[in-house]
Amino acid sequence: MNKDKLILRTRFIERASHWVMVLCFLAVALSGLSWFFPSLNGLNAVFGTPQLARILHPFFGVVVFLLLAFLFVRFVKYNLPEREDLAWFRNVRQVLAGEHEPALQIGKYNAGQKILFWGIMGLISVLLVSGVVIWRPYFAPWFSIPSIRIGLLVHAIAGICLILLIIGHAYLAFWVKGSIRGMVTGYVSRSWAKTHHDRWYRQISNKQSGSGKQQ
């Protein structure tokens, strides 16, 4: 792969974090689902046994949170809302239809991705807080039973929402060809960048031509 023809979109540390998180999330989400939908109980086999799943789920969940927190630090600056995001919203139908015209002045992340970003960050925080409240045997005994009940409900709702978001995220990555490769290798093609993130592409191009440095 000729890296000269490609643009580094995501650094190794970020990619590594992302994919570790994906694995952890998968385990946490599947075990979570195993307890939410009785019929999916077998999914907790991801952790070996139901008992082990119950013990590991919260620890893996915390790992997910920590990795997301790291990614939050790394990515937050690209995910701040901008005036240009409005164009994406106005043209969301074309975006979903896969039409690449007109160019929407999209930065490193489009508005949809930003929503995803903030959604994930928000939900994982809710999951962390509610998860601590219901976490046995370590923390739950410190909370009253009514607060644990609310914790359980909130944790379930937030978990469902997060899984739905992630399904969407994963599907879109799968749909937009080149995205997964981008997250796996770190590199995207210039045409991909130009097509999907035109403003970012321009910024990169300008920087590269200015300093010869990537990013």
Binding site: F37, S39, A170, Y171, I180
Partner: peptide, 21 residues
């Protein structure tokens, strides 16, 4: 290959959920 695997996973997941329901 990765794509196919992912697709499979989605399908299996959907199928399981359907079967369960």
């Amino acid at each position: 290959l990765g794509r196919r695997q992912f697709f499979k996973l989605c399908t299996v997941g959907a199928a399981t959920a359907t079967a369960a329901s």
